[in-house]
Nucleic acid binder design. Structure first.
Lengths: 212, 212
DNA sequence: CGACACATGTAACACGTTACATGATTTG
DNA sequence: CAAATCATGTAACGTGTTACATGTGTCG
C-alpha cells in the first residue's frame, strides 16, 4: 500500500510519466527503496483503472504524463491524514526470529543475537558514511533524505538496545533454570560483542552494558 | 522470506501438519503476525516441491505431518546463522511518507507527524496492556511473546523520538526560510537522539513534551 | 442439534522483484 | 559510431491477504 500512495503523493505536485515518477521518488529517498521501473508502470495502470489518475495528452511525440483526478486527490489527501498503522498485526522478521530461537531446542540464541548485532553495527556505519555526504545547507530533497537516514539510525539503535535486552533476559533465565530457582542475578555476560563502535554517528550506539 | 523460514524452524522441533504449524507459530508470537492458514498450506507445498520437507505417513486417518529433509535442516541452519539484513534497500513506510511530506507543497508536515504520534502512543498503550497479561514466571512461550512485545515497544519509542526530531528539523528550517537567510542557527539538533534508558523493561513512553 | 475447534484446501488479487525486449535521443 | 540515458513496457515468480468450500469430531 505504499508505492501506490507515494505515486499519488508525487502527482500532487505535477503530472508526470512513469520514468519521472521513479526519479522523483528515488531522489527524495536518497536511493533507499529503489523503485523498479516495471512496477511504476503497472502501478500507474492500476491507478488509471481505479480512476485515480488520467493521462494528459501532450503535443507531438512527448511522453504521456498522468495527472490526478478528483478521486485521486481525495485518496492522496486521506493518505496524509491517516497515520501509518501501528497495531496488532506487527510483522517484524527479527523479533519473530529471536522469539522462535528462544523456544526451540538446539538454537544458540546468544549466537544469533551476536550475529545480528554485528550486522546492525555494520548498517550503522554505512548510515554514518552516507550522512557525511549530505551538504550542510540542506535543500528540500536533502532534508528528506537526511530524515530517512536518521530514521534508519534511530531504528538500528533501538534494535541494538533490544538485542542487549534479549541477551539479558536469556542469560537471566538460563541462570534461573540451572541454579535451583535462583532468581535472576547470574554473572555479567558471556562474551562482550566485538563492538566496532561507530565514529561520528549520532549517539554511536554505546556498547558496554553493565546490566544487572 | 520469513514465513518460509519460520516454518522450517518450527519443523526442526518435530514433524507437524499445516494447522499445527499455524498454532505453534501464533502461540510463540502471541498473535502478532496472525498466520493465515491458506498460506501455511501453499508454503508447505513449495517447501515440499523444493525438497526441504517430506510427508510422514501416519497410520489410519491421521492428518499427514511433514518433516525436514537433510536439505531442509541445512536451510534452517543457515537461516539461524545469517543475520536479518539491515542494508541499503530499507523500506520504511513512515520514513518515506514524511520524506515526501517535507518535499511537497501543500502538505502540513507537522500535522502528519502529530497524527502519527497519536497513533504510535495508542500502540504503546496497547503493548502496555498486553504486557500486564504475561505471568511473572515465564515459560518459554511467554518469554518469546514477551520479547516480541518489547521489540514493538522499543521500536515505537524510537519512532516517537524520530518524530520529535523531524518536527525539530522542520521548525528550524521554516525559521531559516522565513527569517532572511539565517543559515546555521539551529544546526544543533542535526545530531539525533536523546538516547534513552535501557532498563529491564522498556520505559512506557514518557510523553509530555513542550514542543513548539 | 448446533456451535466450535480441527483440518485441508482453492481462487483471486495486490504488491514486489528480477529479468528481458524495444526503441528514441543525447553525447563523448 | 558507440555508449549512456530516456522511456515504455511484458513475463514469470514469490509472497501475502481475503474469502470461500468442504469435511470431521467433540461437547454442551
Amino acid at each position: 500500500m505504499s508505492i501506490r500512495h507515494a505515486m499519488l503523493a508525487l502527482l500532487q505536485e505535477r503530472p508526470m510519466h512513469g520514468y519521472q515518477l521513479r526519479q522523483e521518488f528515488e531522489s527524495r529517498t536518497g536511493g533507499t527503496w529503489p523503485l523498479n521501473i516495471g512496477q511504476a508502470y503497472t502501478t500507474l495502470q492500476r491507478l488509471e483503472r481505479d480512476g485515480l489518475v488520467e493521462p494528459v495528452h501532450s503535443a507531438d511525440g512527448e511522453p504521456e504524463r498522468f495527472r490526478l483526478t478528483a478521486a485521486g486527490r481525495d485518496q492522496a489527501g486521506s493518505w496524509w491524514s491517516t497515520p501509518v498503522e501501528r497495531g496488532a498485526p506487527a510483522r517484524d522478521e527479527l523479533a519473530i526470529k529471536l522469539a522462535l530461537a528462544v523456544t526451540l531446542p538446539g538454537v544458540d540464541v546468544e549466537e544469533v543475537a551476536r550475529a545480528q548485532r554485528t550486522e546492525t553495527m555494520r548498517a550503522l556505519q554505512d548510515y554514518a558514511r552516507l550522512k557525511r555526504r549530505i551538504p550542510a545547507d540542506v535543500d528540500g530533497t536533502d532534508l528528506a533524505w537526511s530524515l530517512v537516514l536518521d530514521s534508519l539510525v534511530f531504528q538500528a539503535e533501538a534494535e541494538m538496545r533490544w538485542l542487549d535486552h534479549v541477551e539479558g533476559r536469556v542469560v537471566a533465565r538460563r541462570g534461573a533454570v540451572n541454579g535451583t530457582a535462583t532468581a535472576a542475578t547470574s554473572r555479567a555476560d558471556a562474551a562482550p560483542p566485538p563492538a566496532p563502535d561507530v565514529d561520528a554517528t549520532p549517539t554511536a550506539a554505546r556498547r558496554g552494558k553493565a546490566r544487572r
